[in-house]
Nucleic acid binder design. Sequence first.
DNA 1: AATGAATGAGAATTCATTCAT
DNA 2: GATGAATGAATTCTCATTCAT
Lengths: 187, 187, 187, 187
Amino acid sequence: MDKKESILEATLKLTTEIGWVDTSTSLIAKEANVGMGTIYRYFESKEQLFYDLFIRLKQKLNEIVISSFSFEKDPFDNFENVVRNLLLYYTENMREFRYLETYSDLTSEIPERIDDTLLPLEPITNFLNGWNNSFQLKPLPIDVIFGLIYGPLVAIANLVHMKKLVLTDQIISDISEACWDSIIVKN
Amino acid sequence: MDKKESILEATLKLTTEIGWVDTSTSLIAKEANVGMGTIYRYFESKEQLFYDLFIRLKQKLNEIVISSFSFEKDPFDNFENVVRNLLLYYTENMREFRYLETYSDLTSEIPERIDDTLLPLEPITNFLNGWNNSFQLKPLPIDVIFGLIYGPLVAIANLVHMKKLVLTDQIISDISEACWDSIIVKN
Amino acid sequence: MDKKESILEATLKLTTEIGWVDTSTSLIAKEANVGMGTIYRYFESKEQLFYDLFIRLKQKLNEIVISSFSFEKDPFDNFENVVRNLLLYYTENMREFRYLETYSDLTSEIPERIDDTLLPLEPITNFLNGWNNSFQLKPLPIDVIFGLIYGPLVAIANLVHMKKLVLTDQIISDISEACWDSIIVKN
Amino acid sequence: MDKKESILEATLKLTTEIGWVDTSTSLIAKEANVGMGTIYRYFESKEQLFYDLFIRLKQKLNEIVISSFSFEKDPFDNFENVVRNLLLYYTENMREFRYLETYSDLTSEIPERIDDTLLPLEPITNFLNGWNNSFQLKPLPIDVIFGLIYGPLVAIANLVHMKKLVLTDQIISDISEACWDSIIVKN
DNA sequence: AATGAATGAGAATTCATTCAT
DNA sequence: GATGAATGAATTCTCATTCAT
């Protein structure tokens, strides 16, 4: 059993279940079934452990997003697919979602803001720019376009998290369409 | 000079500038130019101080939102006005915005999630329902409608916060329109 | 109303009712209905206040003991009278008794031990020596004689305090006799 | 070197030498040559440490008392033996004696009074009742009988503590006899 | 004289990190 | 490599004392 993995898993579990403040190294060690000293074999410090986990989850998310693109599909279908994958990732991996969401609020040491780094901006930008010909993207800064998609998804994921909403295929379609409407020029 | 106010201000400043984890009571006292004991004259505990600040900022935000409604205006103008006021509040009071956003992520004690309580849901709901006749709201759960407005605003405010966007009248209009498009049935 | 008296009374009440550790100056001030600063008008420090109260109660006790002597009575009657007065003082003024008993355990600053100073040794010694002719005192150091009287009285007072014993005239007589038997040579 | 023992020893030393009030955890740690945190590895809290020490000393005392009984001896010899053992325990372990004596005065949390629990009442009671036939115990409540023995011993131990008395075999015999005289019916 | 808001040194306790085994 | 007992700096909070009003 890989001790490094156990430690990362225990950290994700504890921070999201009992809160960041109460997640001590000794609890992590206990949850991971390793000695306290073992943590310091694999991570320079507690802070570094938390950062490493952040980077790892961010990369995982990026991979999911990127792999959900398919340039052969119809633009809206593709867009809907990305939205669906993100929503499902968020709601099915709530711990990871919440960890990513809250990580940067805890320490001012790490300058990057979540929204800055959470999603792989470039491929999405390229993707959005790709159908300029078939659909008219509103003439807004790309960051704004991006916020108009990303913002609602976070809000919706929180609704699911709060058990105020159950995601169905219909709801996902509707949300995709709403986001689409907000960024596309209707004629 | 009101010491209670100094303490609240110092708390807001420190949590948002150096991070929640590093904001100790002794630092708050130093920043507020009061003795450590003075904090405990006005607040039962550090936790209560943080909570009191949260409640105070939430109420202030609510008042801003509510006062930005005007039922005599054209529905879209009114909607744009609410969006503008929220965006301006967020960006001109970034510390307060960030405090409100992050507060509930860090204390698992308080069950209310920010999105749940940050805005006065009822008046907004009533407001949105008010023009069912003149404009057709999409048939989505009200929470979802709400998320489709609130989510983008948070994302945009973060962009401003990260200095990736400067709010102009034009941008605000565009964002309002985008949100509008996402929740209104176009015919 | 004499503020100094109020403060001393409040101190006696609080130390014996809620304990020494929890008796803070602010509580004393509240109980005495004076401002916190007033305490420092009449007493140099908290420690001095406690010491002054100790001295005052000790003197009061001394007066009671001394006034209970009567050199005209029969020696045993007189002895019994002293025992009775002490027992009644102890049990009827339990707060004062407990304060005197516990005072010196709290601080090592005051070198005098309670037993050393609690009772006016000299008059009692003189008193005991007074009837060497009519009754034979055992040939023990006077401190030991004294301990053989004082010790049981404290133990008995504690029994009353613990509600394990109710003092009746009969019990008091019996105890007096027991103490008497322990220090007098029977022939 | 057992750190738990060092901490208990340091606590006993400091409370009896510099007083309860001034015995802080950091001083205990320094005296015991351990880190402050080590105290909390072995004891839940300062209060619990003090209580654990109390229980430990009480049990030790009980064992000494019980082991000093010998039912084969002559009643008075046996009584004298118990008195001697107690006096020697008290005077040779003055710190333990003072700790036991003062502990319950300072914590109002623990309802048991020292006199109530300090000595193992039952075996002593049985012991005293054992020679009803050969010697006549005065018809007093057993608690009073007990106080007539225990009280003088405490007073005498304090005399030794105050260096006002040196215990010799003769003095011990005399004291035993005095206590004996106070509880036995002489004919 | 009397007050009580303000102070800050000091208390108990925690926990990230080390290091001898 | 792995462990977890030991550490002590840092944290939250208290309270005796001061001093402007």
